[in-house]
Structure formats: structure tokens, C-alpha cells
Amino acid sequence: MIVKLKVNGEIRSADVSPETTLLKLLREHLNLTGAKLGCDVGDCGTCTVIVDGKSVNSCLMLAGRASGREVTTIEGLASSEQLHPLQETFEELGALQCGFCGPGMIISAKALLDKNPEPTVFEVRDALSGNLCRCTGYTKIIEAVLDAGRIMSTAEAKS
């Protein structure tokens, strides 16, 4: 079946078998490997992407269902001139160790900050509860999300 969707602003399409997940479509057909396969059952969050503004586990979404929708992956956050504030704060605060959970964490955080740029610590924890980190860097990750939120709201206020 042909799946046509918008990924990071570009119209893309791929011919996939019906059981193909959105994660496989992104990684194997579109060569976007930022979303990772960690558990393949929706527990670890390394495959998180944003579909029509909402974060989802791309390992649990069949590619066919993403047809006609707008998907944002980690590859679509930076521009050629500028890192996304989350990428900046995650790097600066050391919120990335082995880095495998990073793309999913950042995407979940983006989905939160896009709606709520000044979250409480609890709201950040809640928004990241579906993203596991085994290097145990949660403290730094939470700091990085709060900091990025501050940068984003400052930028919004000035513009």
C-alpha cells in the first residue's frame, strides 16, 4: 500500500506492507533514524514522534494510519541556522549521556512546550513519563526542558 504523508514539512510517500509501523516507515523507507526502536511495544518512548501535534509511539502506529497526516521527527527540529532550544539546553546541561533516549525525550518535551511553554516540574515529569532513560539523567533532562521552556517563552515575548 502507498502511504503519503508530510514529514518535517516535506511530502513523502512510501510503498509498504500493511503491518508496517510508522517507525519502520520512517527508519527503513525514509531513512530518518532519529526515532529509535527500543522495546517495540510502546513502553520505552525512544520511538516518539509528533503526529498532528500529538506525541505518539511510532512503534504502535501503523504506517497506514499516518497517511495524510503531518509528522514531526527529531530531524525536523533544527533549522540550518539554529538548534531548537531543547537541543541547545539538552546539550548544554548534559541531559544526553548515551543519547539513545534523547530524540524521544526531546520530541515528548517539544509536544509539551508547544502547548505549555512554562510547565511545572510535575507537568514535565508527567509529559516524560513515557520516555525511559537508563543512564539515569532525569534530573538534567527535567532542568533542560524547563530551561528550554524559558528560552521559548522569552523569545515569544520579544517577537
Binding site: G42, G45, K54, V56, M61, A127, G130, N131
Partner: peptide, 9 residues
């Protein structure tokens, strides 16, 4: 239920 990603689907 689950986490944000699970609740969105």
C-alpha cells in the same frame, strides 16, 4: 493510563 504517548493513541 500508560503515558502521554499511549493516551494520545
Amino acid at each position: 493510563v500508560g503515558a502521554v504517548q499511549t493516551r494520545n493513541l
